[in-house]
């Protein structure tokens, strides 16, 4: 049973994340940024029902350089969900002035509907996701996951870091990002059906 540390974010979908991990035989432990000892953590989840600003507060007391070293060396395996994934980048329109981890280059913005479409400004629901299966181990090149977000990394092409993308309001946005031992997903794997449980295999290395 692998131990998985969840970064505590104050109010977030704690029960849903715990239930997901329990269902998959993991042993979840919740810790706030100040008390996480990076030397003792192998598997970390950055949850996503949150905001960029709240993530900044949660990471305030965490040694970001050590975090980067551990991820680079493969000693710390991370799954970052939704707003958690967005926080891997540098900044976000959601919280002007707030600084993200900057482990990945890019600015998170509102997914602006293009003018010809009468769509809403929040992307909620099951959406087809196109996966670069050469870079990300997944059986299907197209798979539906459940999304619930307003912001994202817009106008992307698949490469060796952006390994999955989806489209909302005519804007292609990053839905799976991968760098070293870091995996970020814009969708919510904890509520995307049992098929999405495979995301947890990331912790197996």
């Amino acid at each position: 049973m692998s131990k998985v540390t969840i970064l505590k974010l104050g109010v977030y979908n704690r029960g849903s994340i715990f239930n997901w991990l329990w269902r998959n035989g993991c042993q979840p432990v919740e810790e706030c940024g100040a008390s996480i000892k990076l030397d003792d953590v192998q598997n970390l989840i950055i949850p996503g029902v949150s905001t960029f600003e709240k993530l900044q507060s949660a990471f305030q007391n965490l040694d970001v350089e050590l975090f980067r070293e551990k991820v680079s060396a493969g000693e710390l395996r991370v799954i970052a969900i939704c707003a958690g994934m967005q926080f891997l980048f540098e900044s976000s329109e959601e919280s002007p002035g707030a600084k993200g981890l900057g482990l990945l280059k890019g600015h998170i913005s509102k997914l602006q509907p293009d003018s010809h479409q009468s769509v809403k400004s929040v992307n909620i629901g099951w959406r087809e996701t196109h996966i670069n299966t050469a870079q990300f181990n997944h059986a299907d090149p197209v798979h539906s996951f459940y999304y619930c977000h307003k912001y994202g990394l817009a106008n992307v092409e698949l490469d060796d870091v952006i390994v999955g993308k989806s489209v909302f309001a005519g804007v292609e946005f990053a839905s799976i990002v991968k760098w070293k031992a870091l995996l970020g997903v814009q969708f919510h794997p904890e509520i995307s059906g049992f098929a999405a449980d495979k995301i947890l295999q990331h912790f197996d290395g």
């Binding site: 979908n13 849903s16 269902r23 029902v49 619930c148 509520i191």
Partner: peptide
């Protein structure tokens, strides 16, 4: 606990504490 599906929950949510309780049990 049993299903991997989004749950929206409400009914008498009048404070952030009420919301936190629902989220702690499994609401998304």
């Amino acid at each position: 606990k049993a299903f991997s599906i989004c749950i929206a929950a409400g009914g008498g949510v009048s404070s952030i504490n009420d919301a936190e309780k629902l989220l702690r049990f499994g609401a998304d």
